[in-house]
């Protein structure tokens, strides 16, 4: 038997908890409907353990069910290895590069949300973790939200940015995908793709999606500024090492 499955009470029991809202009044219909959802999700032995009527005609349901499959986890060569501290990053960048890493960032297209990019780049950061502006090892240009890809690229050219960091929060009709791929293609067209670290972040961004869209890295919910800073520091150091090797013949 290979692979693993979730567990609740004892290892390998496969029990998962799912919560959702049904547009039904609390009662037998909401219970039956919830069990039907569980069945169609492929969960065995569905059991409704909680029901609350949120407002007239809408019921919030919590149910347990058993996931009978197994997943085959694999450990990748991680982009997201253990992060360094701010001080470690500043020392690392000074030693490896001898200059600050120039970063330009924005929320692009029609995305009005600047929370993600501000949390990563602005000095106040997120949950007690300074944004990249607070590091000695980064020169940060945060353009804010609703920035056109062309304007972001122009700014990257003006300041000779080492890295472009894009946040995409709006996800209706997968609009973020088109914004993200367009930026990647514009960077390619401008002839600076090899010299630029391209990073995207947002609630629906995964490493797999970042790869699909042509980015060097993708960060999702739960990312702290130190995670991003660590990635950029290591990636820039790796590129510098490759360049040094090629120059050394």
């Amino acid at each position: 038997m290979t692979g693993i499955r979730p567990y609740a009470d004892h290892e390998d029991d496969g029990i998962v908890q799912v919560s959702f809202t049904l547009p039904l009044p609390r009662g037998g219909a909401s219970r039956t409907g919830a069990l039907d959802v569980a069945r169609r999700m492929g969960l065995a032995s569905g059991e409704v353990v909680h029901q609350t009527e949120l407002t007239a005609g809408y019921t919030y349901v919590v149910l347990y069910g058993r996931f009978e499959g197994r997943i085959d986890p694999y450990v990748r060569e991680g982009l997201h290895r253990e992060s360094m501290s701010q001080e470690e990053i500043d020392v690392f960048v000074a030693a490896e590069l001898g200059r600050p890493i120039v970063v330009v960032g924005a929320s692009t297209g029609s995305d009005t949300h600047s929370i993600g990019i501000d949390a990563m780049l602005n000095v106040k950061g997120f949950d007690g973790d300074h944004g990249l502006e607070g590091y000695r090892s980064f020169e940060v240009h945060n353009l804010g939200s609703q920035i056109d890809n062309a304007d972001l690229l122009a700014q990257a050219l003006e300041i000779s940015a080492d890295a472009i960091v894009v946040s995409q929060t709006v996800t209706q009709q997968d609009l973020h995908v088109h914004n993200l791929t367009e930026l990647c293609e514009m960077v390619e067209a401008q002839g600076i793709r090899s010299d630029t670290v391209l990073v995207c972040g947002g609630p629906r961004i995964s490493e797999e999606l970042a790869k699909e869209l042509g980015y060097d890295a993708g960060f999702s919910k739960g990312t702290r500024p130190a995670d991003l800073a660590t990635y950029l520091a290591r990636e820039m150091a790796a590129r510098a090492a490759v360049q040094a090797r090629s120059e050394g013949g």
Partner: peptide, 28 residues
């Protein structure tokens, strides 16, 4: 380097179903 790891070139010794994630950039 890509978000899914570093890219190598492999030769398959037998027919196989494989996941392909190569270089992300045109130059790569």
């Amino acid at each position: 380097r890509t978000p899914l790891g570093t890219v190598s070139i492999f030769r398959l010794m037998s027919p196989a179903e494989i996941e392909v994630a190569g270089p992300s950039s045109a130059s790569g």
